[in-house]
Design a protein around this nucleic acid. Structure first.
Lengths: 148, 148
DNA sequence: TCGCCTCCTGAAACCACGTTGCAAAAAGAC
DNA sequence: GTCTTTTTGCAACGTGGTTTCAGGAGGCGA
């Protein structure tokens, strides 16, 4: 499940520093691996990867860092329809929002950008007087490969 | 957070019977209150309501019934962006899918149907060769009332 | 109507994910 | 380097959901 690498590395760290957040060794590691990830990561995966770089990192720190990033709107939280379990998956907040397609058979997660979705958001804002801050679109189904 | 009452009461029960599922007193109660609910319910709310009708109902039975309904595609699962906690909310699977708008300030959940969303699904099916089975659209933001 | 097989239920224990409280450690401003 | 403030690791806790298993009920066929 490849994830487009659209942002400059180090951006998460730069954003936090610009907001006056203290930069620790642990945070640098976690931010770094989220920036170079080629798939959506959950807290457990992040912890395992982080421990390879620094075995003393605690899972609490991972959760706290994820919460920090979420609060600052720097990552989006997904659950990918619980196909792979109960937890949450994280991705850097993209400049252009996309929707997620998760294959019910092979588990692959694909992303898709569409101007129709931008129009849909515009319609919601106009027709409902609702000011959208975050969106989350997840579709479950069968990918081209699994349909044979 | 009103929920449009678009389906005939008893439909969930009829669907399960048609599929050869055994109908118990407990299931009748749970299905009945999901059909007449005027808002999205989570497992705890369903348990509390069910116990008013039959105090011996166990939470395990609620979870098992929800899983049964989910497996049969009769209810959709939402988490409404965790605005109200970690759990999941359930609604009867509607014939016309809609998106959910959750207000970050007052917690109100609104629903919205749009032909643009139908077109978006068509685009995904065509352009990605992805056969959509379930969708889930959640938007967080500020409702007309809370924007003053 | 009864009997029987099967499926379902309640109870308790369990599990996964995430959070909290607190003392020790580290950032970073001076 | 010193001092203040924030962050960390650890252990204990909370919540939402699942498993195991013995007993109980559904509903079919006679």
């Amino acid at each position: 499940m490849p994830m487009p690498q659209t942002e400059a590395p180090g951006r998460l760290q730069a954003e936090l520093l610009a907001r006056g957040v203290r930069m620790t060794r642990q945070r640098r590691i976690i931010l770094g691996l989220m920036e170079t990830a080629d798939q959506h990561l959950d807290a457990g995966m992040i912890l395992r990867k982080a421990r390879k770089l620094d075995p003393s990192i605690n899972r609490v720190t991972v959760y706290r860092t994820l919460r920090l990033l979420k609060r600052h709107g720097l990552v989006d939280e997904l659950d990918l329809l619980h196909l792979r379990g109960d937890g949450h998956y994280y991705e850097r907040h993209p400049q252009r929002e996309h929707l997620h397609m998760a294959c019910l058979r092979c588990g692959k997660v694909m992303e898709f950008e569409s101007s129709l979705f931008e129009r849909l958001k515009g319609q919601v804002e106009r027709d409902c007087g609702f000011h959208i801050v975050v969106t989350r679109v997840e579709m479950g189904g069968y990918c081209a490969d699994c349909r044979r």
